[in-house]
Nucleic acid binder design. Structure first.
Lengths: 240, 240
DNA sequence: TGTACATCAGTGAACGCGCGTTCACTGATGTAC
DNA sequence: TGTACATCAGTGAACGCGCGTTCACTGATGTAC
């Protein structure tokens, strides 16, 4: 969690500053959980920080800036969990994918408000600044792509049926070709596109569960249902 | 849209009342689009209605009640679109599923704030009253289940591989058996579960697009990407 | 090591704003006889 | 058809609340000489 280094770097003042910012983020997380992103208020954070409201402006430019801090913090927290899970899964690609997926689900269930901040409705009036959020925000898909790419190189992805090869829409094929080049992938377009499908299907499954879309008493064992999702994802990816 | 009948039923007073409520819902929709659910305010609605704020309480019990009206209205609007699309698709089950899915996507893109109200982050502090929202809220999944069931009865769903049959987790199998009984389905559990998978995958794909999760310039042709999703869904359902 | 100055965290008051909800009321519309 | 009463929509004031942001300020901590 957190990931912020708290070593003895910098001057005492700098360290105090770092600690205060960490504290602000911690408090912001709590308020997120209690009230949601739209109701996140600098004044409330200041109150919990034990400081007058204007003092927070020493650390945070404005309310949107605080939201950005929380977004980046959440992306990194999720990214850490996912990376760790994948590493712990060993060399088996199916196991790696399942570990990634379970990490996403586990994080989402433990941190529903932060999950909602990242993957739910956009916060009205707030636009995340791409230069600060894109990096952390692409860690999960990056990890997924890495698994698919490694599996492909290891010959562990079954090739699609013949008709699948030619079935890609031309514009989509162009996009995929560009993405392949940018990420320096050797997996061909039909394999990459399966990764995209599974990516959105995975978050669809997690969002349904975290946001309670299945209904109150429809499924008594959400974890079992999720495992079922994973079976389909693995087959869709063609992992073996 | 709307779906509220505006015939000459009831007394003039009753008709005026109906019209005012319709107007309140319309204004609420606009505010939803502009500010999001969390910022929806009775006072602002009253202003746009040209009435003093306390007057709205003649029509709506409180703020949560207004939200419920908007939730039900949105579910029904979406449900109407989906039903209409499926009916227009004719007898082909693949076409019916694609029509359903395209209707969901089209509605989500046209009405992102209402889509977010239904399928995005829960509104903090608000709980939809089940007795008013469950009916309208299950129309899409109901339509999907109907397609799957009809296709199964028509022998248009390819049976899964043998190992798939026994692969269901026991608790999940129990849930599915109960759902089958409740909905009086003849399609067996392994077919029903595919419907659930596709259901969440579909909303995952639409949410990614509506909420901008793919990133700014990743895919130049979202509609083409969505068609690709549909191909996978159709194969996952085993429709033919 | 000691002093003068600069930096910075935090204060407290203020600006102007919006919110949900209650309450006693006025005046128009509807209903029963 | 006419009158007396009931119902209901809408008013306006009030309660108590919270918000983001600015600004001139105090006093402590750090730095250069």
């Amino acid at each position: 969690m957190g990931g912020r280094v708290e070593g003895m770097t910098g001057t005492p003042r700098e360290r105090a500053r770092e600690q205060t910012i960490t504290e602000i983020i911690r408090i912001g997380r709590e308020h997120l959980a209690a009230e949601g992103a739209a109701a996140l208020s600098l004044r409330a954070v200041a109150r919990d920080l034990g400081v007058v409201s204007s003092a927070v402006y020493r650390y945070v430019k404005n309310r949107d800036d605080l939201l950005t801090l929380l977004v980046v913090d959440a992306y990194n927290d999720l990214g850490d969990e996912v990376d760790e899970a994948v590493v712990s899964a060993g060399a088996d690609f199916i196991g790696q994918y399942k570990a990634l997926a379970r990490a996403v689900r586990g994080w989402g269930i433990c941190e529903p408000s932060r999950y909602a901040l990242l993957f739910g409705s956009p916060v009205p009036g707030y636009r995340a600044p791409a230069e600060r959020t894109t990096g952390p925000g692409t860690r999960v898909i990056r990890a997924l792509v890495d698994i698919v790419e490694a599996a492909y190189r290891a010959g562990k992805i079954v090739p699609g049926e013949q008709r699948e090869q030619g079935a890609l829409q031309p514009v989509l094929a162009d996009d995929l070709a560009r993405i392949r080049a940018e990420l320096d992938l050797s997996a061909p377009e039909p394999v990459v596109v399966r990764g995209v499908m599974v990516w959105s299907a995975l978050f669809g499954a997690v969002s349904f569960e975290v946001f309670g879309q299945y209904g109150e008493n429809t499924f008594t064992d959400p974890a079992g249902l999720f495992e079922q999702h994973l079976e389909f994802h693995v087959r869709l990816l063609g992992l073996e």
